[in-house]
Design a protein around this nucleic acid. Structure first.
Length: 668
RNA sequence: GGGCCCGUAGCUCAAACGGAUAGAGCAUCGGAUUUCUAAUCCGGCGGUUGCAGGUUCGAUUCCUGCCGGGCCUACCA
């Protein structure tokens, strides 16, 4: 609604400027006034026009206000300050529409969207870094679906790499376990924890004696070759750990549709198909000398020179024809094997339906809600959903991977698929690290240098980090203590359920409230907080709103649905003016912004705006709740109005939380 | 060396295409009429937005340089 009116305002104004000044204004900026009393929209357009019209901004603003005329839904235009135009909505009309949940159909872009996130190596337990990835990715999926897009969720599994081989080495060479023993371990709970520790030990074992690295090379070779005991063990380990990851993420309501695996990219020869096309298009060049002699290389992303003038064009092109050694990315090694960037290029050609090959598919994991997650195989089931061949992709991968991601994009461009390259988004975010204090709490001894840092990077290789399940367990235990103290009358099951909801709310909100480029320095104190700018704060606002209706014996949904029957436009207008009206109007306006915010989040790939919005809405509601007792309100008309207000805000808070993958408990 | 990111209150973070008095939370100090109310609310304290220039009517935001920190820059995946 808010967004729709903004668009209407801009269109009208553009038309007015065209008519009056014969000006084409490409971009009319709309802002929000610093205070609610000033109106709902602020237009700084007069400042911009001052130069071309050779008039004072204030004068232009006055002319616009005088001449702009009536726009449906808007009440008035005013000049403010040195030339701002503040615009006021018709509050009653707006509130009626918001209560009824009228939102004019937004134009949804066609085509399926593929979001890939998590992509955890299946050789050890998931840690907090993976949680940030999965929560960002899953929230983005929810945002896209909220906006009406069709979305496939993928989780890429690198099951043939050195990390998996290392755990195999650990079991066979250090632990000296048989296949049957490993199978038994894999079937036990939290097998991923066993691998977490073993993986760190293997890294240490390599360091003790470099000769031990031969075991890795041999294991890696056997895995790639396939059809042998070692490969079978690697497969059983990676599948078991993968299942654990799915269980961990399911605790957070994170589900996947498809799990493409590197092993199938290898066995189904995706690379061969891609290699041919890349050579034909001249994306790859063969090096005859230098350090990369015998390799197929491509230009590293961002190293091409760009001409600043036409005169430079020829010169720059000549320079770009030859790729300097330091700008070369080896795609195919001199021994003929392909590196991971090459496989990634082939994989992304598949995503856009440009490869001419497909995976086999098999059902792999059924969620408690009966949703099936599929996995890649060489030969699959006949009936399967259609994956790949999508219109847009978003890869949720941390910022460290931006160079290879850009290289893949450049390869697509080089293949002549510029439009695909443009619809490829590296959803980049910074890592989760630990504060020195947190690291110390975990029992790690720190150097003086580390102690002075503001954060320390986690390392799976060293077994240094906070495991996702451990954090969740700690959050649930902490929430449980609060619930037990507040609601001793509830059953064991009820209290456990509430504690889980609160824990998930706290965790998901925590990971979303930071903007993507900010490194999260993880600390248990911050993450375990349930007060202030947290998920539970927002959940609690919903619980409070629900309490009003439960204790009053009303149905909140019906108060939204039938708002217009219960309250006349005149009453809306009456209660939304004056000092207290302004307070409450601010709440209504914030509640109406949800879909506007969702649009912002998608356009900027920044879910943090949603967390911020949820918190602000909850904050406004809490103030309202405190200031205006509802059930004891003597004036019947005003009481109805306050109930509608609470019902609408409750509805929007539930929506915002839902888009973040958070549910509100019945009581807190 | 090159590329990308970050630097805002004691701490952790916001500030939508450049906009009106730079905002929250935490911490700290002081308060909240027995109500749908404490996982909450109100108030106090707290800022030369790393530094220096430039562009602009206007800069935390854009540009240049410097200072400080991080990440990436393998024929490993």
């Amino acid at each position: 609604m808010y967004r729709h009116l903004e668009r209407r305002l801009v269109e009208h104004l553009r038309e007015f400027l065209r008519r009056t000044y014969d000006l084409e204004t490409a971009n009319i900026v709309v802002e929000q006034p610093p205070k609610i009393e000033f109106g709902e929209y602020a237009l700084p357009v007069a400042f911009e026009l001052a130069r071309s019209l050779r008039k004072a901004p204030r004068k232009i603003a006055e002319e616009i206000v005088a001449g702009v005329g009536e726009i449906s839904g808007f009440e008035k235009f005013e000049v403010a300050g040195a030339g701002y135009i503040n615009v006021r909505l018709s509050r009653a009309e707006f509130a009626t529409a918001v209560a009824a949940d009228q939102s004019p159909a937004a134009d949804v872009r066609p085509g399926k969207v593929l979001v890939e996130h998590s992509s955890i190596n299946p050789n050890k337990a998931a840690h907090i870094g993976h949680l940030r990835n999965a929560i960002l990715g899953d929230t983005f999926v929810r945002l896209l679906r909220f906006a009406g897009r069709e979305v496939d969720v993928q989780n890429y599994i690198d099951n043939t790499g050195a990390q998996v081989a290392d755990v195999v080495v650990g079991f066979l060479h250090i632990e000296r376990k048989s296949r049957a023993q490993i199978e038994a371990l894999a079937a036990a709970p939290r097998f991923d924890y066993v691998c977490w520790d073993l993986y760190a030990r293997v890294a240490h074992w390599y360091e003790e004696d470099k000769a031990n690295l031969q075991a890795r090379a041999a294991t890696l070779h056997s895995i790639e070759e396939g059809n042998n005991e070692t490969a079978a063990i690697a497969d059983l380990i990676s599948v078991a750990v993968l299942k654990r990851h799915l269980e961990t993420m399911d605790r957070l309501d994170i589900e996947y549709d498809f799990l493409p695996r590197e092993s199938e990219i290898l066995h189904l020869h995706f690379w061969d198909a891609a290699f041919t096309k890349l050579k034909e298009a001249g994306v790859l060049t063969y090096e005859n000398d230098g350090k990369n002699s015998g390799c197929w290389v491509m230009r590293r992303a961002g190293t091409a020179k760009h001409a600043k003038t036409n005169a430079e064009d020829a010169e720059v092109n000549a320079e770009n024809a030859e790729i300097k050694e330091e700008d070369q990315k080896v795609i195919v090694r001199s021994n003929g094997t392909v590196g991971y960037v090459g496989k990634d290029i082939a994989y992304h050609m598949w995503k856009f339906g440009l490869l001419g090959r497909d995976f086999g598919y098999r059902k792999f994991y059924r969620y408690p809600n009966a949703h099936d997650c599929w996995i890649s195989t060489t030969d699959g089931e006949k009936d399967h959903p259609h994956f790949g061949e999508v219109a847009e992709i978003y890869n949720v991968i941390d910022a460290r991977q931006s160079e290879p991601q850009n290289t893949v994009i450049e390869a697509l461009r080089g293949l002549g698929h510029g439009e695909a390259a443009d619809r490829y988004t590296h959803f980049s975010y910074e890592m989760v690290a630990l504060t020195p204090r947190c690291a110390a709490e975990l029992g790690y001894t720190l150097s003086d240098e580390d102690k002075a840092r503001s954060w320390i990077e986690v390392s799976g290789r060293k077994g240094f980090g906070v495991k996702a399940d451990d954090l969740l367990d700690a959050l649930i235990a902490s929430a449980r203590k609060e619930v037990d103290a507040r609601h001793p009358e509830l059953s064991e099951v009820e209290r456990a359920g509430i504690a889980t909801q609160v824990a998930i709310g706290a965790l998901r909100f925590f990971m979303l409230k930071f903007t993507k480029p900010s490194v999260i320095a993880f600390d248990f104190n911050d993450a375990l907080s349930f007060e202030g700018e947290t998920g539970p704060y927002v959940q609690y606002a919903v619980v409070r709103a629900s309490n009003i209706f439960r204790k009053g014996g009303y149905d909140p949904e019906s108060f939204c649905r039938d708002a217009a029957d219960r309250i006349s436009t005149e009453d809306f207008a009456k209660y939304l003016t004056g000092e207290s009206g302004n307070d409450i109007w601010e709440l209504w306006l914030a509640a109406a912004k949800t879909s506007y915010i969702v649009g912002q989040c998608i356009a900027t790939t920044e879910p943090a705006y949603l967390a911020k919005h949820g918190f602000q809405l909850a904050q406004l509601f809490n103030t309202f709740y405190h200031r205006y007792p509802i059930l004891s309100e003597a004036n019947v008309g005003r009481k109805k109005f306050l109930l509608v207000t609470a019902a609408v805000v409750r509805r929007e808070l539930i929506r915002v939380l839902g888009a973040m993958g958070i549910t509100a408990p019945p009581v807190m």
